[in-house]
Write a protein that binds this DNA or RNA. Structure first.
Length: 740
DNA sequence: AGCATGGAT
């Protein structure tokens, strides 16, 4: 996406770091001497020179000069992320060619931003000018000036959709390729292909050691293997301990281990990996109680200890606590204090905590698994891979030699753990990916040159969905509607619903609902304030459907002028609501590009009905039908038994509902549920609800009854007989009447 | 009846 596009906002400059590591630390304006400046320059250069990768500059540049694609392997602390892109700039000299850029992708936003800042400092240029970064909602680049751009991998993937040749880039560096994010995997496939078309494009793939061979073989376009540059890391040794027997209860074992370390090991902070919010908060409470007991028994030998939880739904301010210093000894010469950070796998890659000397690794994490047969993504607690275990271990050796306690046997590590975590492309719903590839003209999705090919069944499921949504025709080619859908940063169901919503005179409302569904959960429910939070939620609930409740929350937030206190009083996350507002305006700009009108219906009852009709146009494959008297529902066609998620505010138990997602936690649940009428299913999704091919059962019988009633009505002249909007492009100019 | 990662657009 070009940076001169008004679609993106410029973020305020990142404030200069005041840390003691900053080469300008202690500098006071208008008092600087030449000696100070030289010292700062020397300091920057010396830090760079100490990086292992610096010694291999010449080797890298030779390899880079002579090859189009190279693989670069560097462990943590090698300096590859900050240095290699600079080396490439010295080689490419992109600033001589106006508008030319070197890009370096990162899987995470924070990394793109902080690395760009560091590199701007090293090159002595200002961030956002010569060196910049680009990610969703934040473009810190200047067209014409920026020649080195750090960006998220998803951002570059978006950019390819509109400029398949990526002509502005002289070199593209894919960093952290071993993480195998969906976006990086697709980019690898596309870039391998693009390299054949653009001989002047260079590609550098940077990864951890284990995967190098795989990438070398995959990118072997000029020989049996793509050339490799290998740089050692710079970390401290970590001693690894295993349990002798498998631990039946890993949380209990983890707590025991933390206490053991606290009593018996020397100073240094602890990092414990658990799987989720509840488990973490629980462990924090238990450890605190146990330590209090220990201190009571033996105050002279047990130091104070603080527990700090870390998971993604905490606010950035709360996350900052991981950098708090450990507590002071209770008496000047008493036993030293210790900090325990209890974290999800967010601390495995995304956040580094200095001062960690001990890691406790029970060997589990929550992972999404996709089951294409029932079209369901679910979160499961699963054993981690060897690569993950090593990554966790490494977190103990950032500042000095450390210890890692693995709560499983060495035999289990050797035999039971997989080498690598399965790449995301093998574990995901590919609906978005299929549209993106189709937009790039990839028609044979099964034979696309993937690093790891997804299961054909996953692709078939995604193609089937796209076809029912009329985004892809029966020959697998993208329809004009599909081309528009691919441009929205949304799941195809939501894109479809948004694009057809002007037909129902409710695009204004659907835009809000889609934005809310794309944002993080807005409801906060603190464990000690559950009742109050539920009461506050009840006041904002619209009993006709959870989608309408989401809309109501957003509108109330706007009516209350984004008030912080109002959010707080109503147990709502202001961060999530702000995010929804951001998404909403981004989507609105995309709508404007395609002249999709923003319209509404005045009559409130009609409006709600229209909204539900638009929902059906996108989510007709996610419909459940009530079976029997109680809260028992069966999903249509798949016949999966489901219940409403406890968070649902829908109280009337209607016969037919659409749902936004299926979640498998303690039970199969459907979350965010709204009542719909069965005749809409037949009218707006006739292909999917073709009863002649429908599985037999109560659902089919109910639909047949509806069909019969409809036929009678048509004879009475109630239907206007026009085409269903579910298969059409939106009409640009429409009458302001809602369809009957 | 009982709310469950983390990353991206």
């Amino acid at each position: 996406m070009p940076s001169d596009n008004p679609y993106y906002t410029r973020a305020p400059p990142v404030p200069k770091s005041l840390g003691t590591k900053d080469p300008l630390f202690g500098f006071l304006p208008r008092t600087i001497t030449g000696k100070q400046v030289l010292a700062a320059m020397k300091k920057i250069l010396e830090t760079r020179k100490k990086l292992p990768v610096f010694g291999q500059m010449d080797e890298f540049l030779k390899m880079f000069t002579n090859n189009q694609i190279i693989i670069m392997v560097g462990e943590t602390g090698s300096g590859k992320t900050t240095q290699i892109p600079q080396f490439v700039c010295y080689s490419d000299l992109p600033h001589l060619n106006k508008g030319q850029l070197v890009a370096c992708t990162q899987p995470r936003r924070v990394a793109a931003m902080s690395v760009a800042k560091r590199v701007a400092d090293e090159m002595d240029v200002s961030l956002g000018k010569e060196v910049g970064y680009s990610m969703r909602f934040e473009d810190m680049t200047e067209p014409g000036s920026t020649f080195l751009k750090y960006m998220t991998d998803g951002m570059l993937l978006r950019e390819v959709l509109n400029d398949p040749d990526l002509k502005r880039y002289s070199t593209i560096i894919l960093d952290e390729a071993h993480e195998r994010t969906l976006a990086t995997d697709i980019l690898m496939g596309l870039l391998k292909n693009l390299a054949k078309r653009r001989s002047n494009l260079k590609i550098v793939v940077m990864s951890a050691t284990l995967d190098a061979q795989k990438f070398q073989r995959y990118f072997s376009i000029a020989g049996p293997n793509a050339p490799l540059v290998k740089v050692p890391g710079r970390t401290h040794p970590v001693e690894v301990f295993y349990t002798l027997e498998p631990e039946p209860d890993y949380v209990e074992a983890a707590i025991r281990t933390v206490l053991m370390i606290h009593r018996a090991e020397g100073p240094g902070d602890i990092l414990l990996f658990l799987t989720g919010e509840e488990e973490i908060e629980d462990a924090c409470r238990k450890i605190k109680l146990d330590v209090d007991d220990l201190v009571k028994q033996d105050p002279d030998s047990v130091g104070p200890l603080i527990c700090i939880p870390l998971y993604s739904s905490l606010s950035p301010e709360q996350q900052q606590h991981i950098f708090d210093p450990p507590p002071c000894p209770r008496t000047p010469d008493g036993p030293s204090g210790r900090k325990v950070v209890i974290s999800t796998n967010i601390a495995e890659t995304s956040l580094t905590i200095d001062g960690i000397v001990y890691v406790v690794d029970p060997g589990f994490s929550k992972q999404t698994v996709y089951n294409p047969r029932i079209r369901v993504e679910s979160l499961l607690v699963s054993p981690i891979s060897k690569a993950s275990a090593q990554q966790r271990t490494g977190r103990a050796g950032r500042t000095r030699p450390g210890k890692c306690f693995r709560l499983y046997t060495e035999k289990d590590f050797m035999i039971e753990l997989e080498e690598q975590t399965h790449p995301e492309i093998l574990r995901s719903n590919l609906a978005n990916t299929v549209l993106e590839l189709a937009k790039l003209g990839v028609t044979d999705l099964v034979h696309f040159d993937y690093v790891d090919a997804p299961a054909p069944e996953s692709l078939m499921r995604a193609l089937e969905l796209s076809n029912y949504l009329a985004a892809i025709d029966d020959d697998g080619a993208l329809t004009p509607l599909g081309a528009i859908m691919a441009d929205f940063p949304l799941d195809p169901q939501m894109a479809k619903m948004l694009i057809v919503s002007p037909e129902f005179n409710c695009s204004n409302e659907i835009l809000t609902i889609v934005a809310m569904l794309s944002a993080p959960n807005v409801w906060s429910r603190p464990p000690n304030k559950r009742k109050e939070a539920d009461q506050a939620k009840a006041l904002l609930t619209v009993s006709d459907g959870d989608h309408l409740t989401l809309m109501n929350v957003f509108n109330s937030y706007m009516n209350n002028k984004h008030d912080r206190q109002w959010c707080w009083n109503n147990y709502l996350s202001q961060r999530a609501l702000q995010q929804a507002e951001n998404v909403r305006s981004q989507l609105q700009r995309t709508m404007e590009r395609y002249e999709i009108e923003l319209v509404t219906t005045q009559d409130e009852r009609k409006l709600w009905q229209n909204i539900r009709k638009a929902l059906v146009c996108g989510f007709f494959m996610q419909v459940a039908h009530k079976e029997g008297e109680k809260n028992n529902y069966l999903t249509v066609k798949d016949n999966q038994g489901v219940s409403f998620h406890p968070s649902s505010g829908l109280d009337s138990s209607p016969e037919w509902v659409v749902f936004n997602e299926f979640v498998l936690t303690t039970k199969p649940y459907i979350r965010t549920v709204t009542e719909v009428r069965p005749e809409w299913l037949l009218e707006y999704a006739p292909n999917y609800f073709d009863l002649s091919t429908f599985p037999h059962g109560e659902t089919k019988r109910a639909l047949l009854r509806v069909q019969k009633e409809r036929a009678l009505k048509v004879d009475g002249g109630a239907s206007n007989g026009r085409n269903s909007p579910a298969s059409d492009l939106p009409a640009k100019k429409r009458k302001k009447t809602a369809p009957s």
